[in-house]
Amino acid sequence: MKPGRPRMKNDEKQNLLSAGDNRHRRTEQEEDEELLSESTKTTNVCVRFDDSPSGLGKTLQTISLLGYMKHYRNIPGPHMVLVPKSTLYNWMNEFKRWVPSLRAVCLIGSREQRNALIRDVLLPGEWDVCVTSYEMLIIEKAVFKKFNWRYLVIDEAHRIKNEKSKLSEIVREFKTTNRLLLTGTPLQNNLHELWALLNFLLPDVFNSSEDFDSWFDTNNCLGDTKLVERLHTVLRPFLLRRIKADVEKSLLPKKEIKMYVGLSKMQREW
């Protein structure tokens, strides 16, 4: 089989069914067998990234990670990068500019164009990364479900903060080894939305929204520093977080000016 070609044996299907996992995550036995089979190709070294590279934004960090997986860990793919339609071509340009050895394909266009790309490119498997939009994912979900994805990367990940939305339900059904969420939009004081993202990343760990909401009740959290510290402790292993000043060094220091003005005539009347 070529890389990216859907691979699923009968015994693997039975393992998934017997595990009772409706999210289509791989069983431990399957992952162990895969790691053992790959040990002949690459040295089994555990690498953990605790800090973000200085100066790299989310897009380049992701591209560099996938390039590292291919050239240093001998894991070319298949990977999926799910992005807003408006940023599709920017992602493709960045792949070609920074890691041209990663064979990135873009699934977009009319029904005829998509069918041709699926038939001639996707199914033969001569590629490493598939970049597509949220809309295309929903339309072509039957095709994407056939692949065993190495990395599933979702840009603007707050789009799946509602676990009951159609997009959120579909991506949870994919067979994936690793999942990565990117967002530049900080979550507000709504911990249930945070749980929805954590549940997507690790459904076996964050499996109960009721328990999570009870552990970190927003009303208590805002006034209790110990609860905030506990929340930070729970999130730290799953999050790489930065502020703009860490990436953009030329920004001037933030300055706040408070101006107090009286009510207007209309405001006073209301």
Score class of each variant (00 low, 15 high):
Ser209Lys: 13
Trp98Cys: 09
Leu191Ala: 05
Arg23Pro: 00
Met69Gly: 02
Arg268Phe: 00
Ile75Val: 04
Glu156Tyr: 02
Arg23Lys: 12
Leu227Gln: 11
Gly223Tyr: 00
Tyr89Cys: 06
Lys249Asn: 10
Glu173Ser: 15
Asp217Lys: 06
Gly67Gln: 12
Cys130Lys: 01
Trp98Met: 06
Arg241Asn: 11
Thr59Met: 14
Ser208Asp: 15
Trp215Ala: 13
Arg119Val: 06
Asp50Gln: 10
Asn115Phe: 01
Asp213Ser: 12
Asn148His: 04
Trp91Asp: 07
Val99Asn: 12
Gln29Tyr: 10
Lys58Glu: 06
Arg48Phe: 06
Cys221Tyr: 04
Thr176Lys: 09
Ile139Gly: 00
Leu17Asn: 11
Asn10Trp: 03
Asn162Lys: 09
Val121Thr: 15
Ser101Thr: 15
Tyr260His: 09
Leu191Asp: 06
Leu56Glu: 14
Ala245Asn: 11
Arg103Ile: 12
Lys41Phe: 05
Leu65Met: 11
Trp127Ala: 14
Ser86His: 03
Ser64Asn: 02
Trp215Ser: 09
Met69Tyr: 08
Pro84Ile: 09
Leu122Ser: 04
Val121Glu: 12
Ser214Pro: 01
Glu135Lys: 03
Glu269Ser: 10
Glu31Ser: 00
Asn44Tyr: 01
Asn199Met: 00
Ile138Lys: 14
Thr225Trp: 11
His158Val: 04
Ile243Gly: 11
Ser101Ile: 01
Asn93Asp: 15
Lys41Gln: 14
Ile170Ala: 07
Lys146Ala: 15
Leu252Lys: 08
Met8Cys: 14
His79Leu: 01
Thr62Lys: 03
Gly262Glu: 07
Lys85Ser: 15
Pro237Ile: 02
Arg230Phe: 02
Cys221Thr: 11
Ser18Phe: 09
Asp217Ile: 01
Pro237Ser: 10
Thr132Gln: 02
Lys9Arg: 12
Arg73Phe: 07
Leu222Pro: 04
Glu31Cys: 10
Ala196Glu: 05
Ile257Asn: 10
Asn90Trp: 02
Val129Leu: 08
Thr185Ala: 12
Gly20Gln: 03
Ile138Val: 13
His192Thr: 14
Asp155Glu: 13
Asn10Arg: 15
